[in-house]
Design a protein around this nucleic acid. Structure first.
Lengths: 238, 238
DNA sequence: TCACTGTCAAGAGCACTGCTCTCGGTTTTG
DNA sequence: CAAAACCGAGAGCAGTGCTCTTGACAGTGA
């Protein structure tokens, strides 16, 4: 690559990456709450104040880690979808759901960083919304392709959103041309179910009942895929 | 009341409550992460070390706040259900969902404390599981009553859980006598959807699409109530 | 070649945190 | 009434994010 012209710029980019790597390492073991700039600087053999040349504050480091986490999750989901490119949309959908869960289980602290409680007083900058929307956009794309191929159940009984809800659904409609609004509304519902279930698993809300959650997760994803019309009633009985 | 015999015991109980109240106040403005024992002691005109006579560590204070939060949420949900005691189970169900959301929106920091990312290295003690299960138990009770009155849709097309998943569902079955396992499985799915949706709303994941989420929440709850058979197909078309 | 400019790591220091320990004084108890 | 238990106050430790200053270095134009 050699993107940076001068040696100084290259060194700076490399050190920035090293700091983020050390921060991620510490994130995995200590958690976002206990992430300490001084500990990072110790691990790197630097003095703490030197880190402020690269990240003006702890929050800026967190922002960088948040963006990286969204991108890593999005990349994992997208590659899972690409690996099943010629499969049935319902199988692609289920593969994406599984990939999201797998990534979350492999990187619980990074998942908590983006889908857990936000840090008070920390305002997520606008730069995070684009990487954050990779997974939803991917999911909408799967539904859109299923629809254009005529593989989407009609869901005639599903209620059509009206009023303000219809306007809100239209934001999704712009990314899913041709998909009926009643389906998009359900996609949004299923979207919240997916991440709610993963959060419950990771945050320990399932212990005593559905933990370990492998079977529960698989069955829930199947039923939710049917719920949005990706799987036919005949297939699974719904 | 005068529960505590001696004056000292009464003073201790009162001061413990005052500390928790101050902590809750600070929680609402600063967030759990920045909750500071020293700030609490300042607000109370005490010295920080004196707090350790009442809570051996910051984590113990957090545990007390967590239990209080679970109890407050459970009480809010239960009173919402009690207020509609003679209504149709589906209306009771929807009232409970709305009450949970309302409580979460009114106490976002306490909600984040119990349903957000857990603090790393903090092991929730066993004393939290009983208050944590008040809402799920309440929900299972509504479904159970609907079933015994014959008001639950049969959901013949819903798949029956098998294998380990069936065993896990049986944990719920013990609290919902007579309700088919395929329904209980769906109750668990809907349970994760409800809290996933509330978390998304509170944690800012819905901005740009479904925010404000009033209509989305109401419609999602309705469709999910139908999903578990509380509302008939004819009512809403499903 | 040499001075100028921007960048860098280092160090001292500030205000804050959770937590421990000791010290007197008060309250409860035997 | 004396002993034991409990209490708040204060000092102090090790850690935190962050700021500011200092001296060394690299790149650049004269």
């Amino acid at each position: 690559m050699n993107a940076g012209r001068t040696a100084r710029e290259r060194a700076r980019a490399e050190l920035t990456d090293q700091i983020k790597a050390a921060a991620r390492r510490q994130l995995a073991t200590e958690g976002a709450e206990r992430l300490s700039l001084r500990a990072i600087s110790r691990e790197m053999g630097m003095v703490s104040s030197a880190l402020y040349r690269y990240f003006p504050s702890r929050d800026d480091l967190l922002t960088a880690l948040i963006i990286d986490a969204y991108d890593a999750l999005g990349a994992a989901a997208e590659s899972a979808a690409a690996a099943k490119d010629d499969a049935h949309p319902s199988d692609i959908w289920l593969a994406v759901c599984a990939a999201v869960r797998d990534w979350a289980r492999a990187n619980p602290q990074e998942y908590a960083l983006i889908y857990g409680s936000p840090v008070t007083g920390y305002k997520a900058p606008q730069t995070t919304v684009e990487p954050a929307s990779r997974v939803p956009i991917l999911m909408l794309g799967i539904v859109t392709r299923a629809n254009t191929h005529g593989w989407l159940a009609r869901l005639d009984n599903a209620p059509e959103p009206t009023g303000r809800l219809a306007e809100q659904v239209d934001v999704l409609a712009a990314l899913a041309i041709g998909v009926p609004r009643r389906v998009l509304l359900r996609v949004a519902i299923v979207w919240t179910q997916l991440f709610g279930m993963i959060s419950f698993e990771l945050f320990g809300q399932l212990v005593g009942t559905m933990d370990p959650a492998d079977d529960f997760f698989a069955e829930a994803c199947k039923q939710m895929a049917t719920f949005i019309g990706l799987r036919s009633n005949a297939t699974v009985g719904f």
